[in-house]
C-alpha cells in the first residue's frame, strides 16, 4: 500500500478517479458512450477531445520545465499560428482544397519554429531568465496575432481544416489522434534517443552536465522550439474547433493550465525528471474539472475557484518544506544535506 501511495502518479490518478466518480454519481449517464452516425459520443470522449489542445501544449511545456525553464508564450503562439493558418485559408479561392490547408499548416508551423527559436535564443544564448524572456512574446504575441487577422475574427469554411478540431476518424474524434500522434512522437524523440535523459541531466544539475560534456545551450534551445511547435498544433486545433481565428482569445491562459498540468503530473518546476504520462493525466484532470463544474450548472469561470484549490493542494503535497512541517517521518534527503557541516 505504501509503495502504491508513493508512486508518483498516485495522487493525480486518485484525483482523476474521484472526479469521474463524482460525475458518475451526480449524473449516471456520464460514463455512457453512444454510437451515432458512426461516431462515438459521450461525456468521457468529450473530455478527452476537449483536453487535446491542452495536452499538446503541456507536453511541450513539460520539456521546457524539465530543463529548468518555463514558457509563458505558448498561448500567444497558439493564437499566432492559428491566425496565420486561418488567414491563409481565407485568402484561397477554394478553402476546401487539401493542398492549401496543408500549406497553411506548414506556414503556421514555420512561424512557430521562428518564435520558438526566438525564445530559445533569449534563454539559452543571451541568458535571460526564462520567465522574463518568454513574457516578451506573451505580451507582444497577442498583438502579432491581431496584426495578422487585422483585429477581425477570421471565419473560414474549410472542411479539411475543420477536421483537425471536430472531425472523426475510426468513430473517434480526430483531435484525439492528433494528440496521440504527438505524444507518441515526442515520447519516441525523447526516450528512443538520449534527448530525454540529457534534458533531465541539464535540468537536474546544469554544472555537472557541463562538466560531463553536454552542450546544454543546444538542448535548452531545442526544448523551446519543440514547445512552440506543440503550441502551434494546439493553435490549429483551437481555431479549427470554431472554424475561426480570434487573435485575442485563442489559447488565452492556456500557458497557465499547461504549467499546472505539468506540475500536477509530478514534473518539478525546478527541472530534472519529467513525465509525459503525468502531464497528460494533469491535463485530463483540468479538463474534467472544467467539464464537471459545467455539468453541475456552475459558470465555467467559477471553476477557477476549484482550480485554485487543486493547484495549491498539489503544490503543497509536493513541496518538501510542507512535507517536513506536516509529516512526522524521517527527514527527507534535502534536509539531511543541509545538516552536513560545510
Amino acid at each position: 500500500m505504501s509503495a502504491l501511495k508513493n508512486h508518483r502518479l498516485f495522487w493525480p490518478v486518485l484525483v482523476l478517479v474521484a472526479l469521474l466518480t463524482a460525475n458518475a454519481i451526480y449524473r449516471p449517464s456520464f460514463l455512457a458512450v453512444q454510437m451515432r452516425d458512426g461516431h462515438l459520443y459521450g461525456s468521457v470522449i468529450d473530455i478527452v477531445r476537449l483536453s487535446a489542445p491542452l495536452i499538446l501544449v503541456a507536453l511541450g511545456m513539460t520539456l521546457v520545465i524539465a530543463t529548468g525553464g518555463i514558457d509563458l508564450s505558448v498561448g500567444s503562439i497558439c493564437a499566432i499560428s492559428g491566425a496565420v493558418a486561418c488567414f491563409y485559408i481565407s485568402q484561397q479561392p477554394d478553402q476546401n482544397s487539401l493542398a492549401s490547408v496543408l500549406t497553411a499548416l506548414v506556414l503556421g508551423l514555420g512561424l512557430a519554429l521562428v518564435l520558438g527559436a526566438w525564445n530559445g535564443v533569449l534563454v539559452a544564448i543571451i541568458g535571460i531568465q526564462p520567465i522574463i524572456a518568454t513574457l516578451i512574446l506573451m505580451v507582444a504575441g497577442r498583438g502579432l496575432a491581431q496584426l495578422i487577422t487585422e483585429g477581425q475574427i477570421i471565419t473560414i469554411n474549410s472542411s479539411p481544416y475543420k477536421t483537425i478540431g471536430v472531425g472523426h476518424l475510426l468513430t473517434l474524434p480526430f483531435a484525439i489522434f492528433v494528440a496521440l500522434a504527438v505524444t507518441v512522437l515526442l515520447a519516441a524523440l525523447t526516450r528512443r534517443t538520449a534527448l530525454g535523459m540529457i534534458i533531465e541531466s541539464v535540468g537536474g544539475n546544469a554544472e555537472a552536465s557541463r562538466l560531463a560534456g553536454i552542450r546544454s545551450r543546444r538542448i535548452i534551445f531545442l526544448a523551446y522550439v519543440i514547445s512552440a511547435v506543440c503550441a502551434a498544433i494546439a493553435g490549429f486545433m483551437l481555431t479549427a474547433n470554431v472554424s475561426s481565428a480570434d487573435g485575442n482569445s485563442a489559447g488565452l491562459w492556456i500557458e497557465l493550465d499547461a504549467i499546472l498540468a505539468v506540475v500536477i503530473g509530478g514534473t518539478s518546476l525546478a527541472g530534472g525528471r519529467f513525465f509525459f504520462s503525468g502531464t497528460i493525466l494533469g491535463a485530463l484532470i483540468i479538463q474534467t474539472l472544467t467539464t464537471t463544474v459545467y455539468a453541475m450548472d456552475i459558470s465555467p469561470q467559477t471553476s477557477l475557484l476549484f482550480k485554485a484549490v487543486v493547484v495549491i493542494a498539489v503544490c503543497l503535497i509536493q513541496a518538501p518544506a510542507f512535507r517536513d512541517k506536516f509529516t512526522r517521518r524521517k527527514p527527507t534527503a534535502v534536509s539531511q544535506k543541509e545538516q552536513v557541516p560545510a
Binding site: 535523459m197 533531465e200 541531466s201 537536474g204 544539475n205 554544472e207 555537472a208 552536465s209 562538466l211 530534472g272 525528471r273 544535506k337
Partner: peptide, 10 residues
C-alpha cells in the same frame, strides 16, 4: 561530487 559531478535525480 554532488554539485559538479553527479545528477542526483538520474
Amino acid at each position: 561530487r554532488r554539485t559538479e559531478g553527479l545528477v542526483g535525480d538520474l
